[in-house]
Amino acid sequence: MSSATSSTLDWDNLSWDSLGDERLLVIVLMVAAVVLTGERTTWRVLRNVVTIAHEGGHAVAALVMGRELAGIKLHSDTSGVTLSRGKPRGPGMIFTALAGYPAPSLLGVGLAALVGLDRIQWLLWIVVALLAILLTQIRNAFGLLTVVATGAAAVAVIIWGNERTTLGFACAVTWLLLIGGLRAVIELQRSRRAQGSGSRGGPPVTSDADQLAWLSHIPGLFWVVVFFAVSLVSIVAGGWLMLSWNP
């Protein structure tokens, strides 16, 4: 009769070889991201991370175009608003409005590249740094709570996480931005269809796509297609980069 301890795994000394190909982890987390963003309850929580990236995209674009950033608010219904001062129309406002929906996907590609280069610690510190910068522009209590909680999770992984934990967390965040970015675009079009789109006078307030339509005189559906294409290409590119992980 074999002893009970003879079949016990030594978890502290497990290596990637004993666990199997690390690429399997990337695939498993991709499936998890699809499932969790597809389920209404979990998506309502996770979407806050996508909203942080979305509003951060607006903020960066506003600064790049020389607009004065007036603050960011994140709401409990997972919506957000980025306020900036400058000309109400023109290229600066168009670029600012355009930057929101692609931001989570493009950030996800950047993080995926760091995963592929085995720069996991860099990735986590970059996330913390971006959240710290964003925190200076938050103008409401829920927004402060959301950004601080997200940053605290990343810091906790940096301090206490082992190699497997940090890689898993990094891949999970990256997939959330990539898959969640696409889910947000799909929701955008569903909302436009349900509420009616376009504007017959003043500037629209319903969505970024309709605001872009008013600013550019190009139909809102065109901008939704652009957002969708960027998100889809980003998922493919991000997945390829993460699957090329080579420690």
Score class of each variant (00 low, 15 high):
Ser2Cys: 03
Ser3Gly: 14
Ser3Ile: 09
Ser6Asn: 09
Ser7Asp: 12
Asp10Leu: 05
Asn13Pro: 01
Asp17Arg: 13
Leu19Tyr: 07
Gly38Asp: 09
Thr41Val: 14
Val45Glu: 09
Val49Asn: 06
Thr51Phe: 03
Thr51Gln: 02
Glu55Ser: 03
Gly56Arg: 01
Ala59His: 09
Val60Thr: 10
Leu63Met: 14
Leu69Ala: 04
Ala70Asn: 11
Leu74Met: 05
Ser76Asp: 12
Ser79Gly: 14
Gly80Ala: 12
Thr82Met: 12
Ala99Cys: 08
Pro102Thr: 01
Gly108Tyr: 00
Val109Lys: 02
Leu111His: 07
Leu111Asn: 05
Ala113His: 10
Val115Arg: 01
Gly116His: 09
Asp118Thr: 09
Asp118Gly: 12
Ile120Cys: 04
Ile120Val: 15
Trp122His: 10
Leu123Ile: 06
Val128Ala: 15
Leu130His: 00
Ala132Asp: 06
Ala132Leu: 15
Ala132Ile: 09
Thr136Leu: 14
Gln137Glu: 12
Arg139Pro: 02
Arg139Met: 03
Ala141Trp: 12
Val148Leu: 15
Ala153Phe: 09
Glu163Asn: 10
Thr165Val: 15
Thr166Ala: 13
Val173Met: 15
Thr174Asp: 07
Trp175Asp: 06
Trp175Phe: 06
Leu177Met: 11
Leu177Phe: 09
Arg183Gly: 09
Val185Trp: 02
Val185Lys: 03
Leu188Pro: 03
Ala194Lys: 14
Ala194Tyr: 04
Gln195Lys: 13
Gly196Ala: 05
Ser231Tyr: 01
Leu232Asp: 01
Ser234Val: 05
Ile235Ser: 00
Ala237Pro: 00
Trp240Pro: 00
Asn246Thr: 14
